[in-house]
């Protein structure tokens, strides 16, 4: 019987950790701009149009133009905003998003270096902890703006977090029980025979639905809800502060996709030699990101009571049932 904690057999040198964190930063800040333009182009295709194609070849320079525009915007602060909390909130969201990236495994330990930021023993709990802090960013931002739309958005964000984080945790619990570990690396290693999307299909679906709610993406983008709340928690933000929120949304999308890949799609497992592992993870993550965009192009925003009743009346019982059945099966076999 192994302990449900990760067995991080080796300690890495500090300089390796520093290099790895720099690499993770560089990679994510290279991927987020690409994601923004890819999302806009893919959304365009879904709506039978091209999307941005004016700036640079195929419109690929669009994020650069966006960034220049956002950075050079006037810094404006509403009079009602609370001085320190208001600028901190968007930074908090980006920080938690990037911090969560640290545990995503992109490959096995090769030549004494693990292809992940850090293999924390509590594994997925780290993800949930930082996911909750990310919602503090939305909550603080909405509340500290001192505007009614922001406040409504923040309230919705809080309610949404409570309704969906539980189902999300329970959905992952099935995979955790099958792997017998909380560490993401061990969970991926446990999937070398069969990816958990097959035995844990219900858990996968619940996780994806909860993941859409967690990232505030359509059809659960109620904290933003641009049709009713202007831009929800982001109403009073402009320039790069708004940009931070937008960036954090993409980072979170990436993280949720990464966790889904780790837990249900066998992480770095795939045909080909070992050095292909990170490529496989990236490919799988991008498949999920495409799914995020696809859903956004398809489904209308749900009503608020529908969101609540889906979370509490459908997902939570389903997730609990899934955990119970998995527990029984794991014990029996």
């Amino acid at each position: 019987m192994t302990l449900p904690f990760a067995d991080t057999n080796f300690a890495e040198a500090t300089w390796i950790l520093v290099v790895k964190s720099i690499v993770i930063f560089a990679v994510i800040f290279a991927i987020v701009p690409v994601l923004t333009v890819v999302e806009r182009k893919v959304l365009g295709r879904f709506q039978a149009r091209y999307g941005p194609n004016r700036v640079g070849p195929y419109g690929l320079m669009q994020p650069l133009a966006d960034a220049v525009k956002l950075v050079t915007k006037e810094h404006y602060r509403p009079r009602n905003a609370i001085p320190i909390l208001w600028p901190i909130a968007p930074a908090l969201v980006v920080f938690t998003g990037v911090a969560t990236l640290a545990i995503l495994p992109f490959g096995d330990v090769k030549d004494g270096v693990g292809f992940y930021g850090i293999d924390v023993p509590i594994g997925i709990l780290y993800f949930f902890a930082f996911g909750s802090i990310a919602f503090y960013g939305l909550l603080l931002g909405g509340w500290a703006s001192g505007s009614k739309y922001s406040f409504l958005g923040a309230m919705r964000a809080a309610a949404q977090l409570i309704s969906y984080e539980i189902s999300m945790g329970l959905a992952l619990l099935g995979a955790i029980m099958m792997a017998g570990s909380l560490s993401l690396v061990s969970i991926v290693e446990a999937q070398h025979q069969v990816w958990y999307i097959l035995p844990q299909f219900v858990g996968f679906l619940i996780f994806m639905v909860a993941g859409f709610a967690e990232t505030n993406r359509a059809p659960f983008d109620l904290p933003e809800a641009d049709a009713e709340l202007v831009a929800g928690y982001g109403t009073e933000y402009g320039g790069m502060r708004y940009g931070s929120y937008a960036m954090a949304e993409y980072i979170e999308m990436f993280v949720i996709s990464g966790v889904a890949v780790t837990f249900f799609l066998g992480g770095w497992h795939g045909p080909g030699p070992g050095w292909l592992d990170p490529i496989w993870v990236i490919v799988k993550i991008f498949a999920f990101l495409f799914l995020f965009m696809w859903i956004r192009a398809t489904l209308p925003r749900v009503r608020y009571d529908q969101l609540m009743s889906l979370g509490w009346k459908v997902l939570l019982p389903l997730a609990t049932l899934n955990v119970l059945v998995t527990a029984v099966l794991v014990t029996v076999t």
């Binding site: 365009g44 295709r45 879904f46 709506q47």
Partner: peptide, 9 residues
């Protein structure tokens, strides 16, 4: 929606 991608812009 996917049929729109197949159709093209």
């Amino acid at each position: 929606t996917f049929a729109r991608i197949v159709e093209g812009p």
